[in-house]
Design a protein around this nucleic acid. Structure first.
Lengths: 203, 203
DNA sequence: TCTTGTGAATAGGTTCACAGCA
DNA sequence: TGCTGTGAACCTATTCACAAGA
């Protein structure tokens, strides 16, 4: 398969979601353009890069297209192949993420939640196993956790991120307000509402 | 001032945050490169576009640079000039966002939180005024709210987004798992942990 | 000598425009 | 006729490379 650019990946992922929300059996690039606001050529190019060639001249077959996207992102993987993730910090935000159903049907599985407050992890009810931060290293290694969602208080953000990295984590979704200083090979994505709003404002 | 590209804007915003976390008085593009992982030429180009020309041949003067960035994004604005925002949906996630201090020192001000559960908005303690969703239109118009953070249950996401748009909102930060179908002129940014993780994984 | 700032070159993405298939 | 797929053109962003200032 051809190399897919990063912007194209993001669009394809959204496309898959849109298709999953759609009842149609076939769909054309023009229709997708109307649904997304992206150029139709862009959409055709994105899909073309998947090299699935379903739907020649007749619009894309929704099922086959979804499958092709999922394949491209290895989203089909069985339970065993899923990428283990964890949430670090179970304040309101961490708890909310823990309860959300985002991970359903994704190539990721939430396998642990961590908090320093031992009381809290005992009291909290959750489908996801909860552990004390004391067990962070052991659990990350034994569960082979690859990605962490960081939702600790700002003061602890850098410290925790450093620990996570030293235990072998590959990437961090950073919900704190701190810009983390980490080795280049670690992927960090900052989820910061103010950055997002500023981007919108100055669009 | 020159037109600043969108990627450059994002970097400058992060740069400002990094500078605010730094104790240094002067800083060079090489040092910033080490802190961020971005190319030094990229950093110099970003800053050059601000046309502030502080720091010729001696690294940038941190204070002046921060000011230049803030200026560029109109972040200095007085209280009265801040852009009013609201949170719609006060579940765990909405509550967490409500309590966070992200908005401090930003060009945005959180002026309202909305929830359909009238009981909840009466019981909840918050520095931000809370209202029933019944008052959504009235409050958005009277408070001149420009941006909304959407944190309602998925089932209500599209419906609420449509309402927000019809009341004149300019942009939505979408924390739900639904891909919203909205007019092109409305800015939407999807905050979806799985999308972010997938992006990391396939980097 | 170390730094910024910036033309010029390069790489990365998007859009155009049309050949080819149904 | 209406659609996809794709070279080619175009536009955008990054990186190189070096002149000029401190």
């Amino acid at each position: 398969m051809k190399k897919i650019s990063y912007p194209s990946k993001k669009r394809l992922l959204i496309l898959e979601k849109i298709l999953s929300q759609s009842a149609k059996k076939r769909i054309t690039s023009v229709e997708l353009s109307a649904l997304t606001g992206w150029g139709e050529a862009t959409i055709r190019r994105d899909i073309s890069n998947l090299e699935c060639h379903n739907g020649l001249s007749n619009g894309y077959e929704v099922g086959a297209l979804r499958e092709a996207i999922n394949q491209a992102f290895q989203i089909e993987g069985t339970e065993a192949e899923k990428h283990p993730c964890c949430i670090v910090g179970l304040g309101k935000l961490g708890e909310a993420l823990l309860e959300s159903s985002v991970f359903e049907g994704s190539p990721f599985e939430l396998v642990a939640g961590f908090d320093t407050n031992v009381n809290k992890i005992e009291i909290m009810k959750s489908a996801v196993p909860l552990f004390a931060t004391l067990d962070l290293e052991r659990k990350i290694r034994s569960l082979k956790i690859e990605y962490a969602i960081l939702a600790v208080p700002d003061e602890k953000a850098q410290f925790m991120a450093d620990r996570l990295v030293s235990y072998g984590i590959k990437g961090i979704v950073n919900y704190t307000n701190v810009i983390l200083k980490l080795p280049k090979e670690i992927c960090v994505e900052n989820v910061n509402t103010v950055f997002i709003l500023t981007g919108m404002m100055t669009r």
